[in-house]
Nucleic acid binder design. Structure first.
Lengths: 173, 173, 173, 173
DNA sequence: TATGAATGAGCCTTCATTCAT
DNA sequence: CATGAATGAAGGCTCATTCAT
């Protein structure tokens, strides 16, 4: 991956995340990345190819997180780690997550696997913890995580720590 | 409001909600509404004007909900009504809410007042219920509501009822 | 001619004169005249029909001037009357003349007869006055009149009187 | 400046001059220049940008003329050069001047500086020649020049030379 | 590898004109 | 006579994509 390729990816991620995929012109990406318009297509074939490259690139980080999760054997610890995730994601991942969530609202969903993965992990946890309705609990917690992600990405509340504290306490972990 | 005007609004709402505002062509709206493209602009002036008309139209329903809320004097009842809202919104409002949430991810946010309003209502409730950190509780619950809305709008889980049951029980209302 | 018809004519003349025929929308004419868009077409058939109606209406005034001219039997007096014309046209005719001159620059010239008429009148005068090259003198004076019309219509110089004085003296009339 | 850019400029000048700026479609310019419509906007940004480019390009020639004027120290010689100008402009400049004069009749005048410049030059000349009312003389001569330009551009009289002769003799230069 | 001129389809919008009322 | 909703062609402009260099 050359330096220009990387610059294209970075700038495209930022713009896609801020203005949306459809509303971002490739010409603008080229200009802000300081490369020619043609180069984007030489490297990524099409605008959609560029998007896919971004998503693959970002997915690695997600997988890293997922595998880190499985180091916790204690279900309480795993639950806590999951609860904390939205509150501590790396700032450099900010644009990536904005993009992911913004894409969720477009018809042709790009990959819903993330939610499914986490849902299954949660299901296992709640079963281990012998919650009465582990399925509903898991589904609800996926929703809560999406909601806190939204808060962190869109509103960036000052009292994020306190929110986490309340959440942690509710789940007793 | 003539019949054609209404048809434009309905079709536009549907398409904006499904594909996103930027990705929807006015020509497509016109075609699917069975009117000439020019008519859209005669009635709504611009694509953005059309969006605003949709939002105003939908906002009435939101206000209806809000004022219905204030009929509950008991904080527990109000809290419960708020918790239930995402699980029982009218099916005809589906597209409207999808549009609202999809727009939240675009930079020039169209109106964030809804979240603020609900946040304040929640703050009051948690204060009345003497929660230790009402502010964090309110902020967290706004997030939870956003998350459940996302679930209902994007995944439409079969066990929605159970999710609500779990939620209601967590808040003891 | 109803009152609304007259209002359409007046407003159209004003707008055509100020912004040009092509750049003026019939919808704007309708709005500023306080009539419906359809009415223009009921009365004048098309945008071009409206223009023709305006020109015919204005031409009457021109003919009035021309026939007034022929009351002067003395060539000097006639010449003087012609020289004075651009400096004393009725203010209500301002828009009409602007329109005439602005149309001269569009390919499909609407009527060049005015220049020809005046050219012939001048030719006769200069022949009667035994100028050495009456033809060139006539052609030049037509140009001078066009030039002074331009000055009066576009720049409206404060010293118009003085200009006329200089001109009258040059021709010794 | 590439060859296609130049072709766009040439064709646009011709069409703007013949049919007027507002009445000329960019699609027509593209077609007659043998380029895609998009190219016009890539090079000139907008239709108005194209017009400005044409005007700047043509202005150079005007400035050349102006500076050539100032080589004449004798006021009579300068006056004569000014009088001759409309009768001898380069045929390749025909469209440029038609455009300039046609634009004068549109409200938002593009640059009136030319008339002002020449007016000042004439004022100086008539003062040096001790004319009784130099201001009126200058203003009148500006008008006469505009009038002869109109004649040359719109009617192209066969006896142009004779007109100039008469004019030169009237000013005794 | 990299450029940027060039393309053409499609976008939002305007406008002259028609027609049911 | 008069309205104004409705049309559809065209207008200026943008954008993803291609290609000669």
């Amino acid at each position: 991956m050359t330096e220009k390729q990387e610059r294209i990816l970075t700038v495209a991620l930022e713009l896609f995340a801020q203005q949306g995929y459809a509303a971002t012109a490739t010409s603008r990406i080229a200009r802000e990345a300081g490369v020619s318009e043609g180069l984007i297509f030489r490297h990524f074939e099409s605008k959609e190819g560029l998007l896919k490259a971004i998503l693959e690139y970002g997915n690695k980080e997600v997988n890293t997180f997922n595998s880190r999760l499985s180091t916790y054997t204690d279900p309480r610890a795993r639950l806590r780690a999951i609860l904390e995730a939205p509150f501590y994601f790396e700032p450099q991942q900010y644009h990536f997550w904005r993009l992911i969530y913004s894409l969720k609202w477009q018809m042709e969903t790009y990959d819903n696997s993330m939610s499914t993965t986490i849902k299954e992990a949660l299901l296992e946890i709640f079963e281990q913890l012998a919650y009465p309705d582990p399925n509903a609990e898991a589904e609800l917690l996926v929703a809560i995580i999406d909601g806190t992600m939204m808060a962190m990405l869109l509103r960036q509340p000052e009292n994020a720590r306190d929110m986490l504290a309340v959440l942690v306490q509710k789940y007793g972990v």
